[in-house]
């Protein structure tokens, strides 16, 4: 909780110039995770560059040829309740509303949601070893209490999971992240935005120093009719997922034309295996079909002493959520299992 200076940026260019001159500066938008981490003495910004006043990124716009552009500075709540999202991308709305609390969703921005740090206990405790926080110090979670940790894509250096719900839906919807950086603009497909820990767990995503997320673009495929977000956790709301599943289906009768499944709470990024989805193509939308997809999605899953259950739970959640997606109207508040 060091002292810092504060400045507002009037444009992306001005913000980029600032961080170019001051590499220790950090951008702030919603601030809900940044200030949380700063108060735990885990982030030490020298300057905060407030992006909220930058015009042009506060709206949700329909794109030509379908699709939507979600301004990076739109709040999570405004996104979830936006008529275009509620009607056309309800999976995204459901996932956002399963995360955090109403107050936090009113503050947190779309750009910031992608940049949350893990909720691993050991990352959050500045006094214990953690490779994500201090590379090379070791991973306390592997030999410690790892109920909330990864079963997929982890490494010997880090078994933390990425905590976002919104991003699980964005992964399923194949969103594209638009970025403006010191070298200009670029876009990154959602699957490539977050990364696995490997031997550099300190790096959560593909952003480079100074990069600003300007929007998250949704492709034309909406999955507005058959979708479900299921979140399993230690209380019915306001808790991070042990396992969550975003499922989107395109059906013809009971036959699956196209499927998307992404998992949250199980890896360092939203977990998606396109091959698992391809297995569902042309199959009936039944528990058996979803079970096959689940096996593919969970291939190579490895549990630790306290989170072995996640493998079975994830499989059952994928099956159940597939069935729930057939009847989106049965979904309960808080993304709970259907009644």
């Amino acid at each position: 909780m060091n002292n810092f200076t504060y400045t507002t940026a009037g444009s992306i260019t001005a913000a980029l110039q600032h961080t170019k001159r001051h590499p220790q500066a950090m951008y702030i938008a919603g601030g809900t995770n940044l200030l949380d981490l700063w108060k735990y003495n885990l982030l030490h910004p020298q300057t905060l560059v407030d992006l909220n006043g930058v015009p042009g990124y506060h709206t949700i716009e329909a794109k030509e040829g379908g699709g939507l552009q979600l301004g990076a500075l739109v709040t999570n709540a405004a996104t979830a309740y936006h008529p275009l999202i509620e009607q056309r991308y309800p999976l995204l709305s459901k996932a956002i509303l399963a995360g955090a609390s109403a107050q936090i969703r009113n503050m947190a921005t779309n750009g910031g949601n992608l940049l949350q740090r893990t909720r691993c206990y050991y990352y959050y405790d500045g006094d214990v070893p953690c490779n994500k926080r201090e590379p090379g110090t070791g991973c306390s979670a592997i030999k410690g209490y790892n109920r909330i940790h990864a079963i997929l894509g982890a490494s010997e250096h880090c078994i933390a999971v990425f905590p976002s719900d919104m991003c699980v839906a964005l992964a399923a919807l194949e969103a594209v992240v638009q970025i403006t950086g010191q070298q200009g603009k670029r876009s990154i497909p959602f699957a490539d935005f977050h990364r696995l820990p490997g031997n550099a767990p300190e790096k959560d995503n593909a952003l480079q120093a100074g990069d600003i997320i300007t929007s998250i673009d949704l492709p034309a495929k909406e999955f507005a009719h058959h979708y479900s977000y299921l979140k399993l956790r230690d209380r019915h709301s306001y808790a991070f997922a042990l396992v969550s599943v975003a499922t989107a289906l395109e059906l013809e009768g009971n036959e699956i034309k196209e499927a998307r499944i992404a998992l949250g709470g199980v890896a360092h990024k939203p977990w998606r295996i396109p091959e698992a989805e391809q297995l569902l193509q042309g199959k009936p939308a039944t528990a058996e079909s979803f079970a096959q997809a689940a096996d593919k999605l969970l291939e190579g899953a490895q549990g630790y002493p306290h989170n072995q259950f996640k493998i079975e739970l994830a499989k059952k959640a994928i099956i159940r959520n597939g069935l729930m997606a057939l009847h989106p109207e049965t979904q309960l508040p808080g993304a709970q299992p259907s009644a």
Binding site: R119, D125, S237, Y238
Partner: peptide, 16 residues
């Protein structure tokens, strides 16, 4: 103790 916060020390919320 490692879950020394109200995010990870779970007491019931209204939904429970």
């Amino acid at each position: 103790y490692i879950n020394t916060n109200l995010g990870e020390y779970h007491i019931p919320v209204h939904a429970d």
